[in-house]
């Protein structure tokens, strides 16, 4: 039996799921709501192209991913990706001795990446820490680590210089590890 579409049920069945998926990426609730609506409208108009080869849900999420990328593309027109003071200092600025060795030693988090990903509290801590990044850092980090886009794609879509991209990613990661450490590992002695 091929999958079929039931557009009357979309909002009730997938609305919240799509909203959460979008909110992780765009942060702003109004923008997330708007993207869900735009996606469902586009889906409605594209119903004829649905061939039943995927599930209704993955078909809708495919369109959603595309609309989210559109949102980031539009942002480049009114956002500069040059570094500014609002991006905050690099937490590693004072992390070294003069000879270039660590002064503030990174803590051993004592978890491997797969185990960490199964820890709900940790995933939630990351969500919290991401919301404390400046929008610029957050957007770039999302495209790289959540959407899994290549550096070349991001530079092209957002019109950023590669060196600028690496600096932003490096600093975003440093801010996240500082925040995660404070959130999760400071209380656990």
């Amino acid at each position: 039996m091929p999958e079929s579409l039931n557009s009357d049920m979309w909002v009730d069945r997938y609305g919240d799921m799509m909203y959460r998926y979008t909110l992780v990426r765009v942060k702003n609730p109004d923008a997330a709501e708007e993207i869900v609506q735009v996606t469902l409208l586009a889906a409605l108009q594209a119903q004829k192209s649905f061939e039943g080869r995927s599930t209704e849900k993955s078909w809708l999420f495919g369109i959603l991913k595309y609309k989210i990328l559109d949102y980031f593309r539009d942002l480049k027109n009114h956002r500069t990706y040059e570094l500014t003071p609002e991006d905050g200092p690099d937490p590693l600025d004072n992390a070294y001795h003069q000879d270039g060795h660590w002064a503030n030693l990174p803590k051993n988090w004592a978890t491997d990446p797969h185990k960490a990903a199964e820890n709900k509290q940790l995933v939630e801590a990351l969500a919290h820490c991401m919301d404390r990044l400046s929008d610029k850092f957050r957007n770039i980090f999302v495209l790289k680590e959540i959407e899994g886009m290549s550096s070349e794609e991001i530079c092209k879509e957002l019109n950023i210089k590669p060196t600028n991209l690496w600096v932003i990613l490096h600093r975003a990661r440093n801010q996240l590890r500082k925040c995660l450490e404070a959130q999760h590992w400071d209380t656990k002695k």
């Binding site: 799921m17 959460r20 998926y21 909110l23 992780v24 990426r25 999420f61 990174p106 988090w109 978890t111 491997d112 990446p113 797969h114 960490a116 990903a117 199964e118 709900k120 940790l122 995933v123 939630e124 990351l126 969500a127 991401m130 980090f141 680590e145 959540i146 959407e147 899994g148 990661r173 996240l176 590890r177 995660l180």
Partner: peptide
């Protein structure tokens, strides 16, 4: 290792079954 953990957490957070 810390950066690898952050990457793994991000991928989990980005899935459609992510805990929020």
């Amino acid at each position: 290792k810390q950066l690898e953990v952050i990457r793994a957490l991000s991928q989990k957070l980005g899935g459609d079954d992510a805990p929020t």
